[in-house]
Amino acid sequence: MHLLTYFGDSMLLLPTAVIIAFLLRWKNDDKRAVWFWLLAFGCAGLVVSLSKIAFLGFGIGSVHFNFTGFSGHSAMSATLWPVMFWLLSGRLSVLWRRVLLIAGYLIPVIVGISRLELNAHSVSEVIAGLVLGFTLSTAFLLSQRTVRPRGFSLAQLCIALLVPVLLFSNGRVATTQQFLQKLSAQIAGIEHPWTRADLLKIKQ
């Protein structure tokens, strides 16, 4: 499960998002696509971060839904992988482009399931993250529905995937959650950030 959940880790996704921006500039005739992509990915990160700060710093969540903020792994992977697979499938046939696009939508679902198996998030948090990410990635893809990105040669594909593959093989995880915990506590002026246990105590 740790292997699967890494497909949603910021250590892998943030550099890959930057690579996608460069590839869009290089392989896409719609030059606005870069800005659309940065807006979509940035919105996902912003919404996730704000939801976590709201809970960690101020205890804003839902006891009924066991909700402490959007699952970042689910949201960010659902924003990134459909776009990445669409971009890399430019030179393929319609059938294989569809297969890769479906794979791009399935990977975030698997990431979400892995977060549940690892007890990192509740069902509501994973679903909220997937809905957020899929909404943003689908909006981006709809903005590019009349555009077909240019294909990659084998050498170009290897270069494009070099950094993600190296990061994946290294397996180092991001410390985003720890950073947000400290930041939230500082913003709220509290000694310790809120935890899920604190939220569930309200239910008792």
Rank of each mutant, 00 (worst) to 15 (best):
E117R: 06
G112W: 13
L50C: 12
G59K: 08
R91F: 09
I159D: 00
A185L: 09
E191N: 12
R196H: 15
L141W: 07
A75L: 01
V131F: 05
V165P: 04
Q178K: 13
L162C: 06
G129M: 08
F65E: 14
K31V: 04
S93V: 04
S51G: 14
R32T: 10
F58C: 05
L87F: 04
Q181P: 01
I187W: 08
F179D: 10
L157Y: 00
W96Y: 15
S137H: 03
I110S: 10
A155T: 11
V99H: 06
D9E: 09
T5L: 00
S124D: 10
A75Y: 03
T138I: 13
L92A: 07
E191Q: 14
P108C: 11
M76R: 06
L39C: 14
A120P: 01
L101I: 01
W26D: 08
L80N: 04
V131Q: 06
I159N: 07
S153K: 02
T68K: 04
G72F: 11
N66V: 10
R172G: 12
F7M: 14
S49V: 11
R97I: 05
A197R: 10
V34E: 01
A75H: 02
C158R: 00
Q177W: 05
G57S: 03
S169Q: 12
F140H: 14
T135R: 01
S71D: 08
N119R: 11
L87R: 00
V123Q: 05
A197P: 00
F134N: 05
F41W: 11
I127H: 03
I19N: 01
F67I: 06
L142W: 13
F67C: 06
V63H: 05
H73S: 03
L157A: 12
F168W: 06
L38D: 03
L157G: 01
G61V: 10
G61W: 05
T138M: 02
Q204C: 07
L12S: 11
S51M: 07
V99T: 11
F41P: 11
K27A: 01
T5Q: 00
L141S: 08
L162A: 10
R115P: 09
V48N: 11
Q144C: 10
A103R: 09
F55T: 09
L24G: 03
S77R: 11
G72Y: 03
S169C: 14
I20D: 00
V147D: 08
L118W: 04
A75W: 09
C43L: 15
E125Q: 14
D9R: 12
H2C: 08
S51I: 05
L50H: 05
L14P: 01
T16Y: 03
L56I: 04
F55K: 09
W194G: 05
Q186H: 13
L118T: 09
S122T: 15
L92E: 15
L100A: 02
K52L: 14
F152E: 00
D29F: 02
A40Y: 06
R32G: 05
L200T: 08
A188E: 08
L95W: 07
L23K: 00
R32P: 06
F41I: 14
G90Q: 04
L106W: 07
H121S: 12
V109C: 04
G129T: 14
L80Q: 08
L166A: 15
P15F: 02
A17K: 01
